[in-house]
């Protein structure tokens, strides 16, 4: 499954400055593994040692938050993932 991944600006030092990249996987977790193979270090930026998404990030599938259990969420070909930081202050 190939999906489009849009990266928050804070992640673009891993992607040579690109805002949009492709990833392959059945779940968000697999897509992050695929991104890691192309952009080493990005998984450690996003996930803790127990392979959970850090709470400061939010991954949306086609505009909808994938919280909770983000990494287990299924994706299908053509989906658009957007990786953002979670923003809640006023």
């Amino acid at each position: 499954m190939s999906v489009k991944v849009r990266l928050h600006p804070c992640l673009r030092n891993f992607s040579d400055g690109r805002q949009e990249v492709e990833a392959v996987g059945q779940t968000i977790g697999e897509c992050i593994d695929d991104l890691e193979s192309k952009f080493p270090g990005i998984r450690q930026q996003l996930c803790d040692d127990g392979c959970k998404l850090l709470t400061k990030y939010d991954i949306h599938i086609n505009g909808r938050s994938s919280y909770p259990e983000e990494l287990a969420k299924l994706v299908k070909a053509g989906d658009e993932l957007t990786i953002l930081t979670f923003v809640a202050e006023g």
């Binding site: 600006p9 804070c10 673009r12 949306h60 505009g63 957007t82």
Partner: peptide, 20 residues
């Protein structure tokens, strides 16, 4: 549309939203 503003990169992104 969710407007995503980042002042550090001085960039605006948008994400299309759909009703759940």
């Amino acid at each position: 549309r969710l407007l995503i503003y980042d002042g550090l990169s001085l960039e605006f992104m948008e994400m299309k939203l759909k009703r759940r």
